[in-house]
Amino acid sequence: MWKTILRRFLIMIPELIILSMLVFLLAKAMPGDPFLGSINPKSSPQQIHHLMQANGLYDPWYQQYWNWVVHLFHGDLGMSYEYKEPVVGLIQQRGLNTLWLALFTMIMTYMIALPLGVYAGKHEGKWQDNLVRVYTYVTMAIPFFVVLVLGIWIFGYLFNLFPTAGSISPTATGFGTVISRLTHIILPGLLGALFGTVNIVQYLRSEVIDAKHSAYVKTAKSKGIPMKDIYRHHIFRNSLLPIAAFSGYSITGLLAGSIFTEMVFSYPGMGLLFLNAVNYRDYTVITALVLLYGFLNLLGTLISDVVLAVIDPRIRVE
C-alpha cells in the first residue's frame, strides 16, 4: 500500500510542474500591470520603466518563470504588490482563517448529512423520505448567495445572534479569542454546511437503498439478524464507504471554494484574498493562490485514493 501512495505522490510532481507553468502564463496574460494602482499621473515613463526593470518584468517569460520557481523553493512567493507584504505570510494568515472555517463547515456538513441520508434511505418512499427530499430540493433550488444574505439578515441582523463580518473581534483576549473565532465561523459554517449536505444526502440515500436491496443483506436476514442490527453492521458501513472516500475532495474543495461565503461575510480568508488580488491584478498573490488551489485539488484526490485503499479490502493490496 505504501508503494501505491508513494507512486501517487510521484505522479503529482509532473502534474504540479504543468500546473505551475499554466498558472504563471495565465497570470502574465492578464490585462493591466501591477503598478497601475501604485503610480500616479505624475510618474514619468522612466520611473515606470525602472519599476518594471527592477521587478524583472522585461525578462523573457521562461526567465521570469524560472526565477519564480527558484524563489518558490525558498519559500518566497514574492511580495504582494497590493499589500506590500510577503505573499507567504499573507496566505499563512488568511489560510488559517479559511482552514478553521472549512473544518467547521465540513464537520457540520457530515453531522447533518449522514443522519439525513441514512434516514431517507431507510424510509425509502415514505413520508420521512419525502421530507428529506423537500429539504434537499429547496436547498438546491435557492441560490447560495441568497441563502447567505438571508442568513445574515435573519440571524445576524434580526436576532443579532452572530457577528456578520470579520474573523475575530479586535477586543478579544486570551481564551476569548477562541470563543470569538468560533462565533465568527458558526453562521457562515452552518450555512455552508447546509448547502454542502445536498449531494451527500442524496448520494448516501441511494447508497443505503442499494445496500438495503443487496444480496448480502438478504443473506444477513436469512441468518436471523434483526433489521436494526443489519443496518448497524452491514448497511451503514457499506454505504458510508464511498462517502468516506469522497472526504478528501470535500475538505480540499472547501478550502478552495469558500470564496462566496468569505465575500458575503467579509471573512478575511483565502477566498477574499483571491478576489481582491484579481481586482488589483496582484499577480504574485494570484499565482500563489491558484497554485495552492491546484495543489489542494491534487492533494484531495490523493487523500481520497489513500482513504479508499485503507478502508476497502477490495482495493487494499496485501
Binding site: 443487496s214 444480496a215 448480502y216 438478504k218 443473506t219 444477513a220 452491514h234 458501513r237 457499506n238 464507504l241 476497502d312 479490502p313 477490495r314
Partner: peptide, 9 residues
C-alpha cells in the same frame, strides 16, 4: 451467487 451474497467488506 455467493459473491454478491457475502458482504464484501
Amino acid at each position: 451467487d455467493p459473491l454478491s451474497a457475502l458482504n464484501p467488506l
